[in-house]
Amino acid sequence: MSVVTKTALDTDVSILNHIKYEHFVAGISGGVTSTLILHPLDVIKIRFAVHDGRLQTTPRYSGIWNAFTTIFRQEGPRGLYRGVVPNVWGAGSSWGLYFLFYTTIKTKIQKGNANTALSPGQHLLAASEAGVMTLFLTNPLWVVKTRLCLQYGGSSQQYKGMVDALVKIYRADGVRGYYKGLVPGIFGVSHGAVQFMVYEQLKNEYTKHYNVPISTKLDTVQYLSFAALSKFIAAGVTYPYQVVRARLQNQHYSYKGSFDCITQTWKYEGWRGFYKGLGTNLLRVTPATMITFVTYENVSHFLMK
Score class of each variant (00 low, 15 high):
152 Y>A: 09
220 T>C: 06
145 K>I: 08
176 R>K: 11
109 I>E: 00
67 A>S: 09
123 H>A: 04
249 Q>E: 13
168 K>R: 15
41 L>V: 04
275 Y>A: 11
279 G>L: 14
199 Y>E: 04
140 P>S: 05
170 Y>E: 05
274 F>S: 02
239 Y>R: 02
91 A>P: 01
127 A>V: 11
207 T>Y: 00
55 L>E: 14
202 L>F: 07
19 I>L: 13
291 I>M: 07
123 H>L: 01
181 G>K: 01
3 V>H: 15
224 L>V: 08
305 K>Q: 13
142 W>H: 08
173 D>Q: 12
194 V>T: 05
147 R>F: 11
97 L>V: 06
83 G>F: 04
11 T>F: 15
129 E>V: 15
15 I>P: 00
246 A>C: 05
166 L>N: 06
189 V>M: 05
218 L>F: 08
262 I>S: 05
18 H>T: 11
254 S>E: 08
259 F>N: 07
258 S>W: 01
88 V>A: 15
150 L>E: 06
191 H>T: 12
305 K>H: 13
183 V>S: 12
276 K>L: 04
31 G>N: 02
120 P>M: 06
303 L>I: 15
296 Y>G: 01
122 Q>S: 08
194 V>R: 00
103 T>C: 01
286 T>N: 08
11 T>R: 12
76 G>A: 09
295 T>H: 13
283 L>Y: 08
92 G>Y: 14
96 G>V: 02
69 T>I: 15
165 A>Q: 05
82 R>I: 05
207 T>M: 03
47 R>Q: 08
142 W>M: 13
61 Y>L: 04
253 Y>V: 14
248 L>I: 10
76 G>M: 09
118 L>P: 00
11 T>N: 10
90 G>M: 01
148 L>T: 01
222 Q>C: 11
36 L>Y: 15
240 P>W: 03
25 V>D: 01
258 S>H: 02
10 D>G: 07
269 E>Y: 05
266 W>K: 10
298 N>S: 13
159 Y>K: 00
5 T>W: 08
21 Y>L: 07
283 L>G: 03
7 T>Q: 12
8 A>W: 14
168 K>S: 09
100 L>V: 04
14 S>K: 13
106 K>L: 15
242 Q>W: 00
244 V>W: 00
272 R>Y: 13
57 T>I: 14
190 S>A: 13
72 F>K: 02
164 D>H: 09
